[in-house]
């Protein structure tokens, strides 16, 4: 049972109040997803706003085959991919260089532990190929189950399991400092 069903029906019927409530419920998760997928490239809040704008426009086409949360994640993945592709083209056009990695930390990097921890995780995720990063983010950070992820990415469950396994293997040495802190 989709906990958002009633709100989705009301929003699809034109209720902005219902849609506002959906945004409040899912904004943190979508911004977190955008941050993880973009790994320092671009503005994740801007991308997340675009996700909800697109969701509003295409809400009538949401048939309820999945939960609203899963559908919103699909929209988010498409928005981020489009944004990254556009950014990659602009970068090539104006600099001639391909931006393969996020920018290194500046001398004024925050010392706040929470921010530092988040940065370590985001940078580690940024080293992964897109397919592995998306899968492990959806599973371990967004809490989607394997079936949902497989449906969202339109791949077999076995593929999802394999991607997540390989992603975690690659992340282990990069996240090891966080293991030792025990946080």
């Amino acid at each position: 049972m989709d906990p958002d069903r009633e709100l989705v029906e009301a929003a699809a019927g034109g209720s902005r109040d219902a849609f506002d409530e959906l945004v409040r419920r899912h904004q943190v998760a979508i911004v977190a997803l955008a941050r993880a997928l973009m790994s320092g490239r671009g503005d994740p809040e801007d991308a997340a706003q675009e996700v909800f704008v697109r969701a509003w426009k295409s809400l009538r086409s949401f048939r309820g085959d999945s939960t609203f949360r899963t559908w919103l994640h699909r929209v988010a993945i498409n928005v981020v991919r489009t944004s990254q592709a556009r950014q990659g083209r602009l970068t090539k056009m104006f600099t001639g260089f391909r931006e393969d990695a996020p920018e290194p930390p500046s001398a004024e990097a925050p010392v706040d532990q929470t921010l530092a921890r988040r940065q370590v995780i985001e940078r580690a995720l940024g080293t992964l190929p897109d397919d592995l990063r998306v899968a492990v983010t959806l599973r371990d950070m967004q809490g989607l189950d394997y079936r949902e992820i497989a449906s969202l990415l339109d791949v077999p469950i076995g593929t999802v399991e394999s991607r997540i396994f390989r992603a975690r293997q690659r992340l282990k040495p990069l996240l090891a400092p966080l293991f030792r802190t025990g946080q």
Partner: peptide, 26 residues
């Protein structure tokens, strides 16, 4: 190791979403 990585990712601090996020969407 798999569990450690999964737990570490799951414990990632949630982002701070600006208070004006909803207003900007609208």
């Amino acid at each position: 190791d798999q569990d450690l990585v999964a737990a570490t990712l799951a414990s990632a601090p949630p982002p701070e979403v600006s208070p004006a996020f909803l207003a900007r969407v609208n």
